[in-house]
Design a binder for these strands. Structure first.
Length: 364
DNA sequence: AATCGTAGCAACCGCAGCTCA
DNA sequence: CTGAGCTGCGGTTGCTACGAT
């Protein structure tokens, strides 16, 4: 098990990224894609490790990030997904377009967890705290397994594996029906009544949600959390609905190769409206492998083509179009960086806008 | 005005898993 | 088969802003 080489390079910079560093990274990835992350800092002229560059890009600089405060629907979905997946933040994030695992993890730890506890729900088990306390007395009570889920890998190996890898759309029923039926009884009902509901039944195999009628449902933690009633289910924001109703969940297992296609090439929802896709196909942000990257970086034809396509597309991104776009739609823009929402003051907003302008000004 | 506690968030760390020579 | 190199993930830390006292 090799440790990342950056761990041994002491002279590399750490800590917060400067606007200049951001600019270098954006410029580089815009032009060449990231290729091998380990080679990015060298090629981009950064004194950072590749790991740090990757993290910075994924969590902060990537233009398809939504940013902004989480909607109630998003929070509810996070809770529901957490009930199934446990702390699988990346899998949860995969169902929330424009959100990063880090962002969701932070939200969970700083906000949702506390709110659930205040409402008498154990954030780990999603059961009422009183039940959890009872469970603790029972030695057979469930603990998280190695996958961070609550399934017993010995007695329910198939279900545990399912919850872990979460093959969301699958025509073959899972081995342990009871698990999901019990978990999603409310889900089933809600989805049946409300075709546009974002409830988790949409994430389950079709054959599953259409099978056995569920018994009387206990309230889900997410429902307790939001105190929803079936008559006044909250409206979904359009982009959210489209992403969720879309069978993005039928995507093949996330490999390095298909990750970019699934998550970047098509706007993370399987449709063709992602700005990473053009008529001519997917953009090559990270698609080039290490060997090809070097060729591209060296100014080969392939690299130039990438550059042209990339810049054309990049210039259409609102957050690179100048101050007005950011000011006019602070909650919608790709460039809606974390500092443009919530409790941040106007001063902070302006300060960070200047920062972003500095970083991106050369594009506009 | 100063201090303290808290919330939110960016970034780091260490590990696991995958690929490939 | 083995180990190095790399990516990705989840847990944790540390910084900053903000509100309460």
């Amino acid at each position: 098990m090799g440790r990342h080489s950056c761990c041994y390079k002491q002279k590399l910079r750490k800590g917060l990224w400067s606007p200049e560093e951001d600019e270098k990274l954006i410029k580089h990835i815009t032009k060449f894609g990231h290729g091998c992350w380990s080679s990015v800092p060298k090629l981009a002229g950064l004194e950072r490790c590749g790991k740090s560059c990757r993290l910075r890009w994924i969590n902060y600089l990537r233009p398809d990030l939504k940013r902004g405060t989480f909607s109630q629907q998003e929070e509810k979905l996070i809770i529901e997904l957490h009930a199934v997946l446990g702390n699988k933040w990346s899998q949860i994030a995969a169902q929330l377009p424009g959100r990063t695992d880090n962002e969701i993890k932070n939200l969970w730890n700083s906000s949702i967890k506390k709110k659930l506890r205040q409402r008498g729900i154990d954030p780990n088990t999603h059961k009422p705290l009183s039940e959890v306390n009872d469970d603790r007395k029972d030695p057979s009570s469930n603990e998280k397994n190695s996958q961070g889920s609550y399934l017993d890998e010995k007695t329910e190996p198939a279900a545990a594996a399912m919850a872990s890898s979460y093959p969301l759309i699958d025509n073959s029923p899972p081995a342990t029906h009871e698990f999901f039926l019990n978990r999603f009884v409310t889900t089933h009902e809600t989805a049946t009544k409300q075709p546009d509901s974002h409830h988790l039944s949409r994430f389950l195999p079709f054959s599953y949600t259409q099978q056995t009628p569920p018994p009387a449902p206990p309230p889900e933690s997410a429902d307790l959390f939001f105190n929803t009633d079936s008559k006044s289910s909250p409206e979904l924001i359009p982009e959210y609905t489209s992403s969720i109703s879309n069978p993005l969940l039928s995507a093949p297992p996330r490999t390095t190769a298909n990750f970019h296609q699934n998550n970047w090439g098509s706007g993370n929802n399987g449709s063709n409206n992602g700005f990473f896709q053009t008529n001519s196909g997917y953009h090559p942000w990270g698609l080039t492998d290490c060997t090809k990257t070097q060729n591209s970086v060296n100014g080969g034809v392939e690299g130039e083509q990438d550059y042209i396509k990339w810049n054309d597309q990049f210039l259409q991104v609102p957050f690179l179009m100048g101050k007005s776009s950011i000011e006019s739609k602070p909650e919608v823009n790709f460039g809606n960086h974390e500092l443009y929402h919530g409790h941040q003051s106007v001063d902070t907003y302006n300060k960070h806008f200047q920062r972003i302008s500095t970083s991106y000004g050369h594009f506009s």
